[in-house]
């Protein structure tokens, strides 16, 4: 029973990697369609719409970051293989949840904003600064959850349970 600790911890790793990765894949895909449409009209917009397309992609990276951090904390990569108690395993799982769930949802909503921003830039290329700002507003929440997951994992590492 007590060996379930590592199972929960790995579940946490999976959640951190696959939920935001899923969201970003959907998001970058959606934004990419709009981006190609904009470039087909005006090829010089390429670099601008590329940045807008990539914005919903960061959640996947944040998720990867937490997943790697968790894996290296529980000894799946690098040195280690230390024993993880059930309580600690569940704590790692919990620590991975914020970036997992918020990463998924924020990537998709950010993609919607990115699409609108791409349309904005297609009509008014001079408004790129503002267009970039709208998706960045959504990203705030992904960053906040990344922060919580990050601090939580670092915190759990030093827990004596």
């Amino acid at each position: 029973m007590d060996s379930l600790g590592i199972v929960f911890a790995v579940l946490g790793v999976a959640v951190a990697a696959f939920l935001p990765g899923w969201g970003s894949a959907v998001g970058v895909g959606l934004a990419g369609q709009s981006a190609s449409a904009a470039v087909s009209e005006e090829p010089t917009l390429f670099s601008k719409v590329l940045i807008l397309q990539l914005l919903p992609g960061t959640q996947g990276i944040y998720g990867l970051l937490i997943a790697f951090l968790a894996m290296s904390s529980i000894g799946l990569i690098g040195s280690g293989g230390a024993y993880i108690s059930l309580a600690k395993g569940i704590a790692y799982f919990g620590a991975c949840l914020p970036i997992g769930v918020v990463g998924l949802i924020s990537a998709i909503s950010q993609a919607r904003v990115s699409i609108s921003s791409i349309n904005l830039v297609a009509k008014r290329p001079d408004q790129f600064g503002k267009a970039m700002l709208f998706p960045a507003m959504v990203e705030t929440y992904a960053i906040l959850s990344l922060l919580v997951s990050l601090l939580a994992i670092i915190g759990v590492n030093s827990l004596q349970i």
Binding site: L65, F68, S72, T140, I143, L144, L146, L147, L150
Partner: peptide
Amino acid sequence: TLSYSRLLALGLATGVIASIMNQL
């Protein structure tokens, strides 16, 4: 003020991903 916590999050992200690449 809390919004500036992104300085920490993105700063750590750079360092941690770079370290992970080295580790791999």
